[in-house]
Design a protein around this nucleic acid. Structure first.
Lengths: 230, 230
DNA sequence: TTGCCTTAAATTGTTGACAATCTGACACGG
DNA sequence: CCGTGTCAGATTGTCAACAATTTAAGGCAA
């Protein structure tokens, strides 16, 4: 089991991103360079570069001389992420009109089955990841790699947001039926309906967020913002 | 004139970005670490980090053991960048409905005047930058920082694309009248018209690109892609 | 006990030297 | 004259030691 692969900063990024996507890294988690060096078997240089890349994706926050931690999007950022997803995914779906063929639809169907199977087998981490990948699959039909990469960022952010403000009873960020309904609308060629379902689906998830619980420690400042300082 | 400021990687990034925006750095330009160290008065570490950030923005391309160079977007990428801009700017303009007040319109008017003044005084670099900033100004009205940051990336890419494939006779990527017409449509509250003008404006720029001239040297690979390797 | 100062440990930031790789030129053989 | 192999110079990649900063604990006085 000797790690012969040197493992580049992109690999480290991918691992951390995956952990975020599967909710194994909670927002606010401190990432010390040394421990990551031990985990991935690389030097500090690589970890440091990975941090820089992840910062650009708003996945980690860097504080000078204080290290890196998994980002904690503010409620304002959360709202903007969801608005962005609505705009982007809607636009990409409209852009997909006439580009979706039978093969694509079958792939989407297969993906739905994978989601269901993961959910049935109790593999929640896998299911969470698949629900995110569904949106990527859908958006890929538009054939625009640049927009797709942007959406990927937004999906990672969504994972952080749901982890922070999502309903604690369900670890879900996507209802399986919603996805199925979207695919069925596409099957019948009704892009307008699919678009509406998609936007509504995102709005549904956003509406389930709870922002009033002070998860974060530094909310004390906000809580006592009305106190006059002499 | 001693540089007392240490100059961080963000500063270096900003300078390089500016140079790209003002067409003082052509696509394909080799960026050696040492020369940039001398120019900005920083260590290789800072330059290296700046490269990583710029790579994330698709402004520089990094090749292992071969250094960094200003990116040269392919025709396919160029097409996707323009498609993305149409989608994004259109969506953001629609999102701005009801959010644009008199003050915003006056700012846009003032910006138009700045553009005109730069053009009249022959300050082309400044004019090029301003034409890009117009689109940022417009998009800012939607109040979505995330989408705005994405659009900024796209605008930098556009600058590279126009430098590569733009009409050589005019160094312009934006017609001044187009911008004015958009603002006038907004002044009369006709968002539909403004949206149409904006999309058409972007299509106009894209249609003026010329892709058939083989600027790049590595086109040999594409030219001989059909050759079988034994 | 509370508050504050001092001190030590831990963590991050920076620099420099060294290793690995690539570029370009020169010589050699065909 | 052309293609190939080799070598020196230049450029990038990596790493380890050192400096700077932050964090946490302990002691001391009020």
């Amino acid at each position: 089991m000797a790690n012969t692969a040197p493992m580049t900063e992109e690999d480290v990024c991918a691992h951390i991103r995956d952990s975020v996507l599967e909710r194994r890294l909670a927002p606010g988690t401190k990432l010390t360079e040394e421990s990551l060096c031990a985990i991935f078997g690389v030097g500090r240089t690589t970890i440091r570069r990975a941090f820089l890349l992840l910062k650009r994706d708003n996945i980690v926050e860097l504080q000078r001389n204080r290290g890196a931690m998994i980002a904690s999007p503010s409620p304002e950022e959360a709202q903007q992420v969801f608005e962005s997803r609505r705009l982007v995914e809607k636009a990409l779906l409209e852009q997909s009109i006439g580009k979706i063929n039978t093969a694509s639809l079958e792939e989407l169907e297969a993906h739905l089955k994978e989601e269901q199977s993961a959910l049935a087998s109790g593999n929640i981490a896998r299911w969470i990841r698949l629900t995110g990948e569904f949106h990527m699959h859908l958006a890929r039909q538009a054939g625009n790699e640049i927009m797709l990469a942007f959406l990927e960022q937004l999906i990672f952010q969504t994972s952080l947001i749901v982890a922070l403000y999502g309903p604690s009873n369900s670890g879900s960020n996507c209802n399986g039926d919603d996805h199925r309904n979207i695919v069925e609308a596409l099957n019948s060629g009704d892009f307008g309906c699919a678009s509406r379902l998609l936007v509504h689906h995102l709005q549904e998830i956003e509406s389930q967020l709870v922002f009033d619980s002070p998860h974060e420690a530094d909310d004390l400042q906000a809580a006592f913002a009305n106190v006059r300082t002499a």
